[in-house]
Design a protein around this nucleic acid. Structure first.
Length: 771
DNA sequence: GCCTGGTCTCTACCC
DNA sequence: ACGGGTAGAGACCAGGCG
């Protein structure tokens, strides 16, 4: 275990006593002692086996007889498990697929990003590691709950620039010409190649990192790209990228993250996955969103131009400055996201350098695995299942038009609370074949699934604990100064708890989940639909007009007294809390579900689902629609909105809008070769591949529609391979700006011809006039 | 061969 | 590689028509 002690010394603590194990669950009708005898017999011929003992555990809530088999060499667990699982009387083999390090963390209770106390002794001198002290643990490290603040880390962020004359840089042929770094102690460095010779750059970069001895190495796209590239490039030069604490190289590890032994490699691109609002994940966009730094468009350089900037000595300075800006942004992004990342790591129990990379489903699963261990439940195996869809939440058709003074009532944590209230869990599920008294079970509406009322199921226990934990954190926060570091830490902690709580329902319906039981998710959703239907009915009986609703919310006229009555009725009769979440002074619905725009009391617009918030529309369409919504909802003037669009279209046709506002971004959701139809972004991706760029799933393709004939996809070109002269302005008028504008303006009787005409015949007036 | 309407593919959103 | 519900654009294709 790599850590920092109370005096700020970097330490390596070695645990030598922990022994790996797995379980053999016995068939219920077998005599456990007989099976144990058979296992002993078989085991005597096998190496590496340690203790073999009979034990009582729980599996899906039922008591089971199990044999715990210890295995002295962790690498032989799969082999031992396979050999013993075929023995007569053994039902199945479980928990044989854990990594040694995770098994240790779970069993010991050692948690990443937390303080622990351990009794230690000095280790032998033969351990080569770049730390102040190496110890052997004499006791299992015990978590210290009371000590919260993290130790002062040394952090470095870096950004590399490669030189490729064509397409994606390749370590075999293309040098790294710049590595820019900055540390949290304020040191900046720019390692430069000598023209195209990067040997001394590589050497001095490695030397510098080792000298600074960071605890955290921050980068962007490091897991998927830069660490592999730099490692391979160093090798090509006959060097070693030994930036870790054991004089080895960064290496590929679990969940596709790259491990730097003894340090935490943090890829801020992985962390940025959490930021749904950032549509195109670049360092600049993430930094701007987090309020870290706003880079001027003028200083930004596309990667396609890196080589030419390097080759031109005058432009090289700009490139160097730009690389330095990137590392500054990165350090700021890290500082902004670290509290959340570390609290998530601590809550889930996965190491800090893995937490950003690991999929949401697995985060929850590791949390559940820790909880299962705590209560003596054996963890189910991963099984492949067919995908069978089921019905989810209910969405109401909105009442189109503009409404004034609308309150949004939300069910508080609807799905988690249903799962608690109805004890919905894989271990409380009663299949149709099993008969129970109606008083013993909760029966889900419509779908009819049954769940035992008692005892409390696994999900109920876990979710109740999480909700109680969050309430407790928030109670402590109330006593603190909002600027204090403790407050910020607790805020990040409650955020992590919330995320895990809210994702439990999705996890329960995921066929890849170890604790999957389709009726669990299906019943939860069915109860959810019942709740909202009842809420709507109750609201209407109270004379509250319901204008919209989605899954766990209803939008009603704001009448505080009746809302108060409604909320206490729902609390009493449904057992769930519904509360006024927010108020819109004015809100606009079209006929579409999941798309609306509301004006908040603070004067801000909240835009939901519309083109403005979608990443796959050109900025010209998004910003135009946003302005229209402002003019309509704030100034209540569809007339001004129409005038604005007309003028904007004139500008667009005269090519007076920035080129970047014409780029359409779309994500590749599969390998380019696997697409069945010729979508524009796929055609643009093919062009990039022809230019030597390697594209993978998840990459964003930015394209421009150019003039010419034929299908649209034949006119889509990557934006960096296109010039403004080629742009088909009419496409952007007809297929971007006009549809986005009319989505709103058609509600006020505006038609396409009104928008595109430069001299309009008639204008709509005010909202009041219109209605 | 051209036009039309319906269906399918694809993406990104909401909660 | 967490769930289902939904909107919307554009490709694709069969069928009608001249």
């Amino acid at each position: 275990m790599w850590g920092i002690d109370g005096e700020g010394r970097r330490v390596l603590v070695i645990e030598r006593s922990f022994v790996m194990y797995f379980y053999l669950v016995l068939k219920s009708q077998e005599d456990p002692k007989t099976v144990l005898g058979r296992i002993h017999q078989q085991a005597s011929e096998m190496p590496f086996l340690g203790q073999i003992e009979l034990t009582v555990k729980r599996f899906f809530g039922r008591e089971v007889q199990a044999i715990k088999v210890s295995c002295l060499d962790p690498d032989f667990v799969p082999q031992c498990a396979k050999a013993l699982s075929g023995i007569e009387g053994v039902e199945k083999c479980l928990e044989d697929d854990f990594r040694y390090s995770m098994r240790y963390l779970i069993d010991s209770g050692v948690t990443p990003c937390s303080w622990h106390r351990a009794d230690v002794e000095e280790a032998d001198r033969d351990v080569k590691a770049q730390v102040d002290d190496v110890y052997i643990a004499k006791t299992v490290p015990a978590r210290m709950e009371e000590k919260g603040a993290p130790p002062p880390f040394r952090t470095i962020s870096f950004f590399p620039v490669y030189h490729a004359s064509r397409g994606a840089p390749k370590p075999e042929t293309d040098p790294v010409v710049i590595i820019s770094t900055i540390t949290n102690t304020g040191e900046t460095r720019r390692f430069k190649a000598s023209n195209l010779d990067d040997r001394s750059l590589m050497e001095s970069f490695v030397e510098y990192v080792r000298g600074f001895d960071p605890d955290v190495i921050v980068g962007f796209e490091t897991n998927r790209r830069h660490l592999q590239f730099l490692t391979a490039r160093a090798r090509k030069l006959g060097l070693k990228l030994s930036i870790d604490r054991v004089n080895a190289e960064p290496h590929q590890s679990v969940y596709g993250h790259v491990s730097i032994t003894g340090r935490a490699g943090m890829d801020m691109l992985d962390m940025a996955d959490e930021l749904q609002e950032v549509k195109v994940k670049t360092i600049e966009n993430v930094a701007a969103f987090l309020g870290v730094k706003r880079l001027d468009e003028q200083v930004m350089i596309d990667e396609t131009d890196f080589a030419s900037y390097w080759d031109d000595l005058e432009k090289r300075t700009q490139l160097l400055r730009y690389a330095a800006e990137k590392t500054e942004c990165l350090l700021g992004i890290f500082e902004s996201m670290f509290p959340y990342a570390s609290q998530l790591s601590r809550l889930v129990g996965l190491p800090l350098d893995q937490i950003g990379r690991v999929a949401v489903g697995f985060r929850i699963e590791w949390y559940l695995i820790r909880e299962a261990f705590r209560i003596g439940e054996i963890v189910p195996e991963r099984v492949e299942r067919p995908y069978i869809p089921y019905a989810g939440g209910m969405v109401l058709a909105p009442k189109p038009g503009v409404h004034e003074n609308i309150a949004v009532l939300d069910f508080k944590s609807m799905y988690p609370n249903i799962m608690i209230e109805k004890n919905v869990s894989p271990d409380t599920y009663i299949p149709p074949s099993v008969s129970k008294l109606p008083t013993e079970v909760n029966i889900a509406p419509v779908v009819g699934h049954k769940f035992l009322k008692e005892p409390a199921g696994f999900y109920k226990r876990v979710l109740s604990d999480l909700i109680a934990f969050r309430d407790q954190i928030r109670a402590r926060m109330k006593e603190l100064d909002q600027q204090s570091s403790e407050y910020r830490l607790l805020d990040a902690r409650q955020q992590a708890v919330k995320v895990i709580t809210n994702a439990a329902y999705g996890y329960a319906g995921w066929i890849g989940a170890r604790w999957f039981e389709k009726p669990v998710a299906e019943a939860t959703a069915a109860w959810g639909r019942e709740m909202i239907i009842n809420a709507i009915q109750a609201a209407e009986e109270l004379g509250l007009n319901v204008v919209y609703g989605d899954t766990d919310s209803i939008f009603v006229e704001r009448e505080p007294e009746r809302i108060e009555t409604l909320s206490s009725m729902i609390k009493r009769e449904l057992g769930l809390e519904i509360r006024p979440d927010k108020v819109y002074e004015r809100i606009l619905f079209t006929e579409a579900k999941k798309r609306y725009c509301g004006l908040l009391p603070n004067g801000n617009l909240e835009i939901v689902g519309l083109e403005v918030v979608r990443g796959d529309w050109a900025n010209v369409a998004r910003t135009t629609q946003e302005r229209i919504l402002e003019l309509i909802l704030k100034e209540q003037s569809p007339g001004k909105a129409l005038e604005f669009v007309q003028q904007f279209i004139v500008q667009l046709r005269q090519r007076k809008v920035p080129y970047r506002d014409l780029i359409i971004w779309k994500t590749l959701t599969k390998p380019v070769a696997e697409y069945e139809v010729n979508a524009p972004h796929v055609a643009a991706a093919r062009k990039l591949e022809n230019e030597g760029w390697a594209l993978t799933v998840g990459d964003k393709v930015g394209y421009i529609i150019t003039q010419g004939s034929g299908k649209l996809y034949e006119r889509a070109k990557p934006y960096m391979l296109t010039s403004y002269e080629e742009v088909d302005a009419e496409y952007y008028v007809a297929n971007q700006v006009v549809p986005a504008a009319l989505r709103i303006l058609s509600m006020f009787g505006v038609r396409e011809a009104d928008v595109t005409a430069s001299a309009p015949s008639k204008k709509p007036g005010t909202l009041a006039e219109f209605f």
